[in-house]
Structure formats: structure tokens, C-alpha cells
Simulated scan of single mutants.
Amino acid sequence: MTAVPQQSRGLTPLLVPLLAGGLAALALGVYGRVHTPTGFAVGVAGFSGALPMKAWLTTGAFVLAIVQVVSALSMWGRLGVTIPPGVHRWSGRIAFLLTIPVAFHCLYALGLQYDVPRVLAHSLLGCFFYGVFTAKMLALPKHDTPGWTLPVLGGLAFTALIGLWLTSSFWFFTAIGLKV
């Protein structure tokens, strides 16, 4: 009886996803910096303005990100209860879709700003979020990645989204109020 060598689960399979994620983050940052901001909102239907739209959509994504963490913990057997896999997939899809109009408005109307520390942190977190999200989605179908890949990339996306919520929605709700 001969031993079957275990396949190496090195970092090579992560090269393309991480490179693509880094390029996505960099491209968003460069575009946000070189694009001349228009200064006006686009597509705020149902909201009184761009800031309430962004605050509420980001809050929706924030809540769904918590659903993502809970459902991921369930899928990895850390909760002792089973949540249907569709909950994880669909909460992630909807959370991502909620961020699109927010990111579009941020890039189109405001660009990447660095004058105020909170806004700089928000701008950089936004670029980082889309970069790590890109890397996670590209690493997802790969079965030869290290076992820590999805939890780490998912955790980074979650952390970035929490930072985005704190530097935008939380700030808006505490400074401006609960406007719709």
C-alpha cells in the first residue's frame, strides 16, 4: 500500500483573484481621483436626496452583511443550527446590489476625497471593499485555495462594509438624523 501525496494548497491559486482585486481597488481609486466630480446626485428615486439614499442603502447592505456572517458561520458548522445555503447566497447578492447605486453616486458625484479624515477613510474603504469583494468572488469557485481563503476574504469584506457604514450611514444618522 502506497501513500497518496496530498496536493499542495499553496497561495498560487490566489494569485489571479488577489491581483484582480488589487487592480479593481486601484482602478476605482484612480478613477475617483482623476474623474471630475459632477457634484449632483443621480437616481435618488424614493429618497429626499443623495445622502439619505446612500445612508439607507448602506444600512440595508450592513444588515445583510450581518446575515452573511451568521449564515457563513452556520455553513461552516460554527452555530449548531442549519441555515439554508440560499440565505447566504441571496443576502450577499442583495447586499452587493444595494451598494452599487451608492458607489456609483460616490464616484460620479463626489470622487475620491481626502480633505476630511472621515471622508478619506470612507473613500479608501470603498475601494478596498470592491477589491476584496472581487478577490472573494474570483476565489470562490476555486477548490484548490487554502481553507482560510473564503473566511478571510469574507471577513475583510465584512470589516470594510462595517467601516463604510460607520463613516457614512452612522455619521449621517447621528449628525443629520433619520431622514428618508
Rank of each mutant, 00 (worst) to 15 (best):
P17Q: 12
L18P: 00
L18F: 06
L19R: 08
L19W: 04
L19M: 15
A20G: 09
G21R: 13
G22V: 11
L23D: 02
L26K: 01
A27Y: 10
A27H: 10
L28C: 05
L28F: 09
G29P: 07
V30L: 15
V30I: 15
Y31A: 15
Y31L: 14
G32P: 03
G32C: 01
R33M: 04
R33P: 11
H35R: 13
H35Y: 12
H35K: 08
T36E: 12
G39F: 00
G39M: 01
A41M: 11
A41V: 12
G43A: 07
A45P: 04
A45S: 09
A45Y: 11
G46R: 08
F47L: 02
S48D: 13
G49A: 15
L51V: 13
P52H: 09
P52G: 12
K54R: 09
K54Q: 12
W56V: 11
L57N: 03
L57A: 13
T58Y: 03
T58H: 00
A61P: 08
F62K: 02
V63E: 05
V63N: 06
A65R: 03
V67N: 03
Q68W: 04
Q68I: 13
V69W: 01
V70G: 08
S71R: 01
S71P: 11
S71M: 13
S71V: 09
A72H: 09
A72W: 14
L73N: 08
L73F: 12
S74Q: 10
M75S: 14
G77R: 10
L79Y: 00
L79E: 01
L79I: 02
G80L: 07
G80R: 09
G80Q: 08
V81P: 09
V81N: 06
T82Y: 06
P84G: 02
P85S: 06
V87W: 15
V87N: 03
H88A: 05
H88F: 07
R89M: 12
S91C: 13
R93G: 14
L98G: 02
L98F: 02
P101Q: 01
P101F: 12
P101M: 12
P101N: 13
V102I: 12
A103Y: 09
F104W: 13
F104Y: 14
C106Q: 13
Y108A: 14
A109Q: 02
A109V: 12
G111E: 03
G111M: 04
L112V: 15
L112A: 14
L112K: 12
Q113F: 10
V116T: 13
V116E: 15
P117E: 04
R118H: 03
R118I: 15
L120P: 04
S123C: 06
L125A: 10
L125Y: 05
G126N: 06
F129N: 00
Y130G: 06
G131N: 06
G131I: 12
V132Q: 03
V132L: 01
V132H: 00
F133M: 15
A135P: 01
K136P: 03
K136A: 15
A139I: 09
A139E: 05
L140H: 08
P141I: 06
P141N: 04
K142G: 02
H143F: 12
P146I: 01
P146E: 03
P146M: 04
G147Y: 07
T149R: 00
P151W: 02
V152S: 06
G154K: 06
L156K: 04
F158M: 10
T159L: 15
T159G: 08
T159Y: 09
L161Y: 07
G163S: 02
